[in-house]
Amino acid sequence: MKALILKDLYQLKAYCKSLLLIVGVFTLVIPFSDGNLFFCIYPVMMISMLPMTLLSYDERTKWNSYCAALPFRRSQIVTAKYLLCLLLTLPMALLVLGLSAIRISVSGSGQWSALAVLAVSLLVMSTLSSSLSMPFLFRFGVEKGRLLYIIIVCIACGSSFAVQDLTASVVLPVPVLPVMVLLCAGLFVLSWRLSIGMYEKMEIR
């Protein structure tokens, strides 16, 4: 499985430089963004999209066929993509949170409860899109799966503005946050198991 992740990292380095640059610019804006959630969520969303982009390259270069002929289990091929998703999005989410914490400390606004909501929002955003789209990508291929992903991005971006209003007016009861974390983690694991099941049944041409 290390081989699969190494191959993905080589591809990221080669193909996704411009995307990583955009993510970097958005991340740098966070301390000066006056708490705008779009700047916080967008980089994490973009990063969470990368495993799906790599799946598209795999299909285009016929790596998915070649890989199926190499000594990997189908479950390892799927797991490598989910691991990559976590390896990319979780450090990104932590970076965004750290920068947001710096912004709150420097501004002296004391919106620490908003930071907790942001943490959960980032977790939801970073795992939800992958959790929902990956099984479709592994079952139906990238073209159809990507269509679903675009729909999810539209909903997520729209809802980020709603979440922003919420953080200004509503303080979520503390127990809701761990429950949401557990739900996201559960959904991610369920999606992973579902993708393995679907990919094991799939015929690779």
Binding site: K2, A3, L6, K7, Y10, Q11, A14, Y15, Y57, D58, T61, K62, W63, N64, S65, Y66, C67, A69, L70, P71, F72
Partner: peptide, 23 residues
């Protein structure tokens, strides 16, 4: 295979490192 299937961005050295972890 007919179309080999190695990703286009990889060079032979990188392919070697990946295969060293595969086989």
């Amino acid at each position: 295979f007919d179309e080999v299937g190695i990703p286009g961005c990889l060079n032979a050295l990188q392919v070697g490192k990946i295969m060293a972890l595969t086989y």
